[in-house]
Amino acid sequence: MPAYNDMVKSFSPNEVKLMLGLAKGTTVIGNRVASNSGCEKRFRSLVALVDAKTVPTAAKALHAKWLPKP
């Protein structure tokens, strides 16, 4: 797990945009995140690893949406 977390932390802006885009719509990931609370929680924890400075402007709203709920 630590290696995967480090990988997510080092995502480029394009990779961040792709990651966030996968969770919307009718993709396999989108469906799983929408229908399984455990998947949603894990996805939110991955989004929290992303450095906010690497989030492209076009994806800032999606990033904010997927940050862990307080």
Score class of each variant (00 low, 15 high):
G38V: 14
L18I: 15
F11E: 09
C39E: 14
S37V: 12
M7K: 15
V8G: 02
S45Q: 14
A52W: 02
P2V: 11
V8A: 04
Y4W: 08
V55T: 01
V50K: 02
A59Q: 03
M7D: 12
G21T: 15
P56V: 01
K41T: 11
A64M: 13
G38N: 13
V50L: 15
L62D: 12
P2N: 05
V55W: 05
N31D: 10
K9Y: 06
G30Y: 01
N14P: 02
A48C: 02
A3K: 03
A61H: 02
F11G: 03
K69Y: 12
W66M: 06
S45F: 00
M7Q: 13
F11P: 10
K69R: 11
L62G: 09
M19C: 01
R44C: 09
K60E: 15
A64P: 14
K60F: 11
K24A: 05
Y4D: 06
L22P: 05
N36H: 08
P68W: 04
T57G: 06
S35H: 10
L20M: 03
P68G: 07
T57F: 05
A23T: 00
C39W: 08
A64G: 10
V16S: 03
A34H: 07
S45N: 14
T26W: 12
D6G: 13
A58Q: 06
K17Y: 14
I29T: 13
E40M: 14
F43C: 09
F43V: 06
G21C: 04
P68V: 09
M19E: 05
P70I: 05
K65H: 09
S35G: 04
C39A: 15
K41D: 12
L20C: 03
F11N: 01
N5C: 11
C39V: 14
K9Q: 09
A59D: 10
S45L: 11
K60A: 12
T54C: 04
F43K: 00
L46M: 13
D51R: 00
G30F: 00
E40N: 15
T26S: 12
T54Y: 07
K9H: 03
I29K: 03
K17E: 14
N14H: 10
A52P: 07
N5E: 12
S10L: 06
A48Y: 04
K24D: 10
D51T: 01
G21Q: 08
E40K: 13
G30M: 02
A52C: 00
T27F: 02
